[in-house]
């Protein structure tokens, strides 16, 4: 237990951050270079104003027609993404660990709020999973990788709730919690989770195309 803990919170923690940051940087640079080489036109049409206009519409709940057509998905998606970022960044237990290691800390949430946010993430993943197996048009597109990613994303939150409530076996579960969090971080650059970084660019580009060339809305 102590050895595993030492590895998880020592070298593996550094490794996962390094893979996350290094991998993301690598993917960014390689995509940028490829775009410079092959998609020069993209840079010509990118337009900050229209890119932001499109992004703003799509980051506003029910700001696009498709969101109004799928209200349940919209609510869950927004709740999921917000909770996914807020909970780990501002839960006291994480911030105090940062304070211990780096001597800095920031705003923290009451534990009960972080608890609810984590439960929201887990339930959202359950919703996404149900959608993946029940909606034919989603099932058709779903691969086993999608399911695995969903599990990897849900895992740190499910174990986090488990550990917080100190359910049976929680000390071991703490290790699983740390590992699954590191795993999630590390796979971001190499999986569809990288959409967190690509979203502003895909959205921004189509927004620029629609706004600047096509003079039409894209929401």
């Amino acid at each position: 237990m102590h050895d595993i803990y030492a590895i998880l919170t020592g070298p593996l923690a550094w490794l996962s951050f390094a893979v996350f940051l290094g991998g993301s940087l690598y993917r960014f640079i390689s995509l940028y270079q490829l775009a410079r080489k092959k998609d020069g036109a993209v840079f010509q049409y990118m337009d900050l104003k229209f890119a932001l206009r499109s992004i703003a519409h799509w980051l506003t709940p029910f700001g696009a027609k498709n969101m109004r057509m799928n209200p349940a998905m919209t609510v869950v998606t927004f709740a999921f993404h917000i909770a996914l970022f807020i909970a780990p960044l501002f839960v006291f237990a994480h911030v105090v660990l940062i304070e211990e290691s780096f001597g800095i800390h920031w705003f923290t949430l009451p534990d009960s709020v972080a608890d609810i946010l984590s439960i929201i993430v887990v339930l959202s993943c359950v919703f996404f999973f149900a959608r993946r197996i029940m909606r034919p048009e989603v099932k058709f597109l779903t691969t086993w990788v999608d399911i695995v990613i969903l599990i990897i994303v849900a895992a740190p939150f499910a174990t986090g709730v488990w550990v917080f409530h100190q359910w049976a076996g929680f000390p071991t579960m703490t290790l699983v919690h740390i590992f699954s969090g590191e795993l999630m971080l590390a796979i971001i650059p190499f999986t569809k989770l990288f959409h967190m970084f690509l979203f502003p660019f895909t959205r921004g580009y189509i927004g620029s195309e629609f706004g600047g060339v096509r003079m039409a809305k894209d929401w």
Binding site: L31, K192, F194, L198
Partner: peptide, 12 residues
């Protein structure tokens, strides 16, 4: 990159 990003970003 455009095609690559379009195919890689789709979350199904």
């Amino acid at each position: 990159a455009k095609l690559k990003v379009y195919v890689d970003t789709c979350v199904h």
